[in-house]
Design a protein around this nucleic acid. Structure first.
Lengths: 104, 104
DNA sequence: CTTCTTGCTACATATTATGTAGCGATACTT
DNA sequence: AAGTATCGCTACATAATATGTAGCAAGAAG
């Protein structure tokens, strides 16, 4: 049974289900500035396979996070706030100490 | 080639690589309040298989996000700010309109 | 009709997750 | 000492998911 089948009751669970899927955070991140075509998005995402990219885009579109406009894929208005959160994540990552907490 | 092999150069990429793995966001979310034992954490995460849980915990520990204390697994000091971001995510999710942007 | 670029599909192969059982260590009870 | 209960974690066969490559169908431009 795929994880997403357990229909997440609370919104945060539903959101974590979506954001926790491979490539999803990356895709939203890459769309933060300007719209990108399917192919351009693929390039930005290390040439992710089109199969998966399409699956993820479908998921994001179904959930009102991304839409396909004339200039390519772009975050919806709703998703822009989410993008802001990702920017905060980026800020945080700069001061992130990636070494384990060794009690030694 | 697994995605994580392309060693993410910028911190945000490294972070997205980690957070984008299945169960990782969920695990951090479940640890937001109080420490949880391996087994308790499994229960919270819909009985995720111990194999994967252990892989993820190892990843999170290696990257200074989670540590194993006397009371169980808990976020490191560094990760607490990240947890705060997830709380914001939760707030956002409550006003999230999950329907597609249909131009009709 | 040719040559672009677009979004996207097909499909065999490789990687990753699931589900279940249980090991070895520690602690507490009897 | 022997039983019971917990802990973190491992083994392993099976199922689900991702990768990589090729290419289709549609639209625009020459």
């Amino acid at each position: 049974m795929p994880m997403s089948d357990k229909k997440a009751q609370r919104p945060i669970m539903a959101l974590l289900d979506i954001l926790g899927q491979r490539w999803v955070l990356r895709i939203i991140w890459e769309l933060r500035d300007a719209p990108l075509t399917f192919r351009a998005l693929r390039e930005r995402c290390d040439q992710i396979s089109p199969t998966v990219l399409n699956q993820r885009l479908a998921l994001l579109r179904e959930n009102g996070l991304v839409e396909l406009g004339d200039a390519g894929y772009q975050p919806t208005q709703s998703c822009k706030d989410l993008g802001t959160l990702l920017m905060q994540l980026s800020d945080w990552s700069k001061s992130w100490d990636r070494t384990p907490e060794k009690p030694d």
